Simulated assay, not measured.
Amino acid sequence: MARIAHLSDIHFGANDPKIVDAATAWLDERRPDLIIISGDFTQRARIAQFKAAAAWLNQLRAAGHKLLVVPGNHDIPLYDVVRRFAAPLDRYKRYISNDLCPFYEDEEVAILGLNTARSLTIKDGRINHDQMDRVRACFGPVPPEKTRILVTHHPLFAMPIGTGGELSEAVGQHDDAVVAMCEAGVHLALAGHFHRTYAESARKMVERAGGALVIQAGTATSTRLRNDEPQSFNWLHVRRNNEIEVQVIVWDGAGFQRASHVDYRHDGEVWEARDMAEGPVVGSMAKRVTR
């Protein structure tokens, strides 16, 4: 079994240091096999914000944690127009990671991260055909018994983003991206961006979407909350034979606590959820996780 902590939308520059410290303590105590951070390390891609984010990542690495990270749209300068188009991810590559398509593999999982942040789209995401080819190339040789995980900042699918059932825009070139994901046999698609938790079988969202389970992380440490959903991150137990446990770990004002615990099993067509939580489910999107 692989134990993975999935954090997103850290937003140094608009974060709560107390919550950052609590998240660090939680991770140090639980010792995940891998920490995934799916973008938005900064609020406005400023040097001081990147330095603060880099210091935190170095603290995690010094404690022995393995990391896989991808950038988000907030890691591209918004107001510095020249830098935005001439060197959009130069600071990210200098302070966070020079690898925009990181790949990790062990005996249990194979994980590929892709950069979906673009200069032109401002906040929306996009995947190009070279990246789709990389998905196929990276996952093609992976043994069938391993769980294949794709990590992006922007979700590949249109996602519920409010309490009224409204949907976001899907990532750019969505249809081709879904085909590549299906052909590569992706089991899990992890993302962030909307500061809301969510999980659903891709096939229930889009026809011919393949066998992936789509998992969204909320914001782990940002003060920019949406729809009153508190800071949170996901704690995943990835087992072979198409079994995944998803725990939503939520900030309660004093520390991080488990808010929901859902066991997902793949029946050959779609992922079905069985709620294992005894405590309350936090946040309207978290309710979707445990239905």
Rank of each mutant, 00 (worst) to 15 (best):
L27E: 04
I36H: 05
L27F: 06
Y95T: 07
T221K: 11
P32N: 03
K51E: 14
D80A: 12
D175Q: 13
D252K: 10
R94H: 13
I37E: 00
S201K: 01
H237I: 12
G172P: 08
Q216N: 10
R288L: 11
F41G: 10
R208T: 03
A189R: 04
I122K: 15
L34H: 04
Q247C: 06
Q131S: 06
R30L: 13
I215Q: 06
I76T: 07
N128W: 01
P155K: 10
I37S: 04
G283E: 13
H153N: 10
M181T: 01
F194K: 12
H74I: 13
S168D: 03
K51N: 13
A63K: 11
A217I: 02
H129G: 09
R196C: 09
T24I: 11
H237W: 00
E229N: 14
P88Q: 02
L114Y: 00
A184D: 00
A55I: 08
D124I: 13
S97G: 09
C182Q: 08
Y92W: 05
H65L: 00
H6T: 02
W251P: 11
L114G: 02
A117L: 09
A117T: 05
M285S: 15
V262P: 01
E207Y: 02
R44E: 15
I215D: 07
A48W: 08
G72W: 08
I127W: 06
D124T: 15
T197A: 14
R196W: 05
I127H: 05
F139E: 01
W235H: 04
D133K: 04
L60Q: 06
G268Y: 07
D175G: 07
E29L: 12
H6M: 02
P144T: 02
T152V: 09
G283S: 11
V69G: 00
D80I: 12
A209K: 01
V262Y: 09
L34E: 09
D176N: 01
A14R: 15
T197W: 05
P77W: 11
E169T: 12
A110M: 03
M276G: 15
D176F: 02
R46H: 14
R148S: 09
G39F: 05
I4S: 01
V248L: 03
F256I: 11
R84H: 04
H74W: 12
T24V: 14
H187V: 01
V248M: 10
V81G: 00
D228H: 12
G125V: 13
A286G: 15
L225T: 10
I215E: 07
V69M: 08
H154Y: 10
Q231N: 14
P77F: 07
R134F: 00
E107K: 13
V282K: 15
G164D: 14
